[in-house]
Simulated assay, not measured.
Amino acid sequence: MQGRFISFEGIDGSGKSTQARLLAEALRGRGQTVVLTREPGGSPGAEEIRRLVLEGDPDRWSAETELLLFTAARRDHLEKTIRPALARGETVITDRFADSTRMYQGISRGDLAAAVDQLHRLMIGVEPDLTLLIDIDPEVGLSRAVARQGAEQRFEDMGLDLQRRMRAGFLALAAAHPGRFRVIDGARDPQAVAADVLAAVTGH
Results as ranks from 00 to 15, higher is better:
112 L>W: 01
181 F>E: 05
31 G>R: 04
172 A>S: 12
154 R>A: 02
137 D>A: 14
143 S>V: 13
202 T>H: 00
71 T>D: 04
23 L>T: 14
123 M>I: 09
103 M>A: 13
80 K>E: 15
191 Q>W: 06
34 V>Q: 03
133 L>W: 05
44 P>H: 07
117 D>H: 03
81 T>S: 10
63 A>D: 05
44 P>R: 09
197 V>P: 11
87 A>S: 11
179 G>A: 13
45 G>L: 11
167 R>I: 10
109 R>S: 13
72 A>L: 07
32 Q>E: 14
157 D>G: 01
74 R>I: 15
67 L>C: 15
183 V>Y: 10
118 Q>R: 07
112 L>K: 00
125 G>V: 10
104 Y>K: 01
152 E>F: 14
201 V>L: 07
100 S>V: 08
15 G>P: 08
21 R>A: 15
98 A>S: 05
30 R>Y: 08
174 A>Y: 14
40 P>W: 08
10 G>D: 06
162 L>P: 04
167 R>W: 08
111 D>G: 14
38 R>S: 15
111 D>L: 11
142 L>Y: 00
136 I>R: 05
156 E>G: 00
78 L>T: 11
192 A>K: 03
88 R>K: 11
119 L>E: 05
92 V>Y: 02
161 D>F: 03
85 A>D: 13
45 G>D: 13
41 G>F: 15
154 R>S: 05
52 L>G: 04
141 G>F: 02
36 L>D: 01
200 A>C: 11
146 V>Q: 08
59 D>G: 14
52 L>T: 13
46 A>E: 07
76 D>I: 09
15 G>A: 09
135 D>Q: 06
69 L>N: 10
40 P>E: 11
174 A>Q: 06
108 S>P: 05
162 L>Q: 04
121 R>I: 02
121 R>M: 09
86 L>S: 12
29 G>T: 11
103 M>N: 01
138 P>T: 15
123 M>Q: 04
6 I>G: 04
44 P>K: 07
82 I>M: 01
14 S>E: 11
76 D>Q: 15
80 K>T: 15
184 I>H: 03
33 T>M: 07
164 R>T: 07
76 D>Y: 09
99 D>N: 06
44 P>D: 14
27 L>W: 03
55 E>Y: 00
111 D>N: 11
89 G>Y: 05
46 A>H: 14
117 D>R: 02
62 S>A: 09
127 E>C: 05
169 G>R: 02
88 R>W: 08
180 R>W: 10
194 A>L: 13
203 G>Q: 08
120 H>Q: 13
124 I>L: 12
175 A>Y: 00
47 E>F: 03
100 S>M: 10
175 A>L: 01
62 S>F: 04
125 G>Y: 02
59 D>P: 00
26 A>K: 02
143 S>N: 03
188 R>Y: 12
106 G>Q: 03
118 Q>A: 15
3 G>S: 02
124 I>E: 04
94 T>F: 04
10 G>Y: 06
101 T>H: 08
3 G>P: 06
33 T>G: 07
17 S>K: 11
139 E>H: 13
47 E>H: 06
180 R>T: 12
47 E>I: 05
154 R>E: 01
16 K>F: 06
